[in-house]
Design a binder for these strands. Structure first.
Lengths: 154, 154
DNA sequence: CTGCATGCAAAATGTTTGCACTCTA
DNA sequence: TAGAGTGCAAACATTTTGCATGCAG
């Protein structure tokens, strides 16, 4: 069993809290942040890159990845791995622990808090003697809008 | 937003129910099944391949992937995507819907049923107007054994 | 001016596919 | 013997890294 080695590298740099990506304000950094703020859906680095490019803001794919990574490390952005393997990112309203209800059509996402779930996972894990517990809970479905659209098409 | 295209290809072939991988019994197919049955942990195709090879059973990596895919399609094997991107497989006791409590050290897994979770996700999704709902719930932690081992090492 | 940030090209992963060959039924 | 199964090599897709250059502070 392989465990991803967590880099304890000196990424201790912290920029002006509130805005910004890394220590410096750059056109690219702002662009990534902006693009991420504008969309409500979980977006992949590739899509984000294409989006920026189409929008006229030229940013290297590498740079997009790097900024996303920093934002995730900083907890400003949520990251989940889609079933097809792509990693998707989203700027969530709360930095507190929460889960997502994602529309599999349009990607629109609703943040949900579930005290009962936290409780349940903790209980279950404890019952089996597990410690240092974490969990992933994501709900996928079709939102009302997309369902209606599909309906009218059919 | 890209949705993985579900192959509705003519994989309608069904072998003797109970054992087997595909329609024919082969050394490789049996080996993959056996290896999967022997371990209690979620295992990646790569690890499974290495395992078989080390064990003396030469099987191509491609073949391992193909058998795993078939087994998953058939519902005989559970598949989840690890955080680091690798897809891991496991033969579960029940083919019914359930979740997993996975030890992040040794990979040992406990299958858990959570009626309250099913209930909760359905309720939450419905409240937001989502239909055709599915969910993923996995709990990760360190099992008692591994925790004890870590303890004595420290 | 200093050195963080950028981005191209190339490497690394993990997984899938084309195709000729093998072996089961 | 027919064709499912196998496996090598190559294609793929996504993400990461090396390195020379550019720009913010």
């Amino acid at each position: 069993m392989r465990i991803a080695e967590e880099g304890s590298r000196p990424t201790d740099r912290r920029a002006a809290p509130g805005r910004g990506t890394t220590v410096r304000a750059t056109r690219q950094g702002d662009a990534v942040c902006a693009a991420l703020t504008e969309t409500d859906a979980f977006t992949s680095a590739q899509d984000l890159h294409a989006l920026l490019r189409a929008q006229g803001t030229a940013v290297g794919l590498t740079t997009v990845y790097r900024h996303l990574q920093v934002l995730v490390d900083r907890g400003e952005v949520d990251m989940i791995r889609r079933d097809d393997g792509e990693t998707v990112y989203r700027r969530c309203a709360t930095e507190a622990h929460h889960h997502h209800l994602v529309c599999r059509e349009c990607g629109r996402t609703v943040e949900i808090a579930g005290p009962e779930i936290e409780q349940w996972t903790a209980t279950v894990a404890a019952a089996e003697g597990f410690v240092d517990v974490a969990h992933t809970v994501e709900i996928y479905g079709t939102c009302a809008t997309c369902a209606a659209a599909a309906e009218s098409t059919t």
